[in-house]
């Protein structure tokens, strides 16, 4: 379902070439839940950005749902992000002046979905994260945990093949983090693959598989 082969990402700083990812290969099956761990600067976020087609790669191959997505145009990458990938960020990244339901609706509008279908999907996603009653609230009126639940609803509303979560519990207290992890487990059990970058061993232990990244390489 998800396969990276010898992916490379490098940066030139002055005369020094720095490798953020080097010979990075990873294969993930359908319905898998992978926790990516490692120290700061190990290349976890770079990996996630490449996996999410947000950053280009400098070498290697990347296959998503059987399709080579290594060298797609911006339009095609955007289309894949919109239809096959769901994102959950540490800082939530909600649009501050859009209500919870409008935030969830945004990727569906970008997809060109009809208003009726959008309404149905947004309602179902918010119900799944337990925020139906807060649908019209602005993010600033929601707690951190609730904001992250809105972000989860936004990620699942489009029924993606895979969810990429970058430190989803990083900004939350222990109780709230546990709730979020329960939701991710439920989503995974429903069939959606998840790749989660985390520093938290508690969060990582709910994953089906744990990998560690050091110096841009997997040291599983």
């Amino acid at each position: 379902m998800f396969r990276m082969e010898s992916v490379e990402r490098r940066f030139q700083v002055g005369e020094i070439m720095t490798y953020a990812l080097r010979d990075f290969s990873l294969s993930i099956g359908e319905g898998d839940f992978v926790a990516v761990e490692g120290p700061s600067g190990a290349g976890k976020t770079t990996f996630l950005n490449i996996a999410g087609l947000l950053d280009p790669m400098d070498g290697g191959k990347y296959y998503l749902a059987g399709e080579d997505v290594s060298e797609l145009s911006d339009r095609d990458r955007s289309l894949i992000r919109n239809q096959r990938i769901g994102f959950i960020f540490q800082g939530f990244n909600l649009i501050p002046d859009l209500s919870a339901e409008k935030n969830v609706e945004l990727p569906l509008r970008l997809r060109g979905m009809s208003a009726a279908e959008r309404k149905q999907r947004v309602g179902a996603a918010l119900e799944q994260v337990g925020l139906t009653s807060r649908a019209r609230h602005l993010p600033s009126k929601l707690s951190g945990g609730q904001q992250q639940r809105v972000a989860i609803a936004r990620a699942i509303a489009g029924s993606p093949n895979i969810i990429l979560a970058d430190e989803p519990t990083g900004n939350l207290d222990t109780h709230m983090a546990a709730q979020i992890m329960e939701m991710l487990v439920a989503i995974n059990e429903a069939g959606t693959s998840i790749i989660m970058v985390t520093h938290s061993p508690e969060s990582a232990q709910v994953a089906k598989r744990r990998i560690e990244v050091r110096d841009g390489r997997i040291v599983e």
Partner: peptide, 16 residues
Amino acid sequence: TPEASVTRALGATRTD
């Protein structure tokens, strides 16, 4: 730009 970046992540193209 931060909002545009989120929109890009959610599927908007550069042209959009």
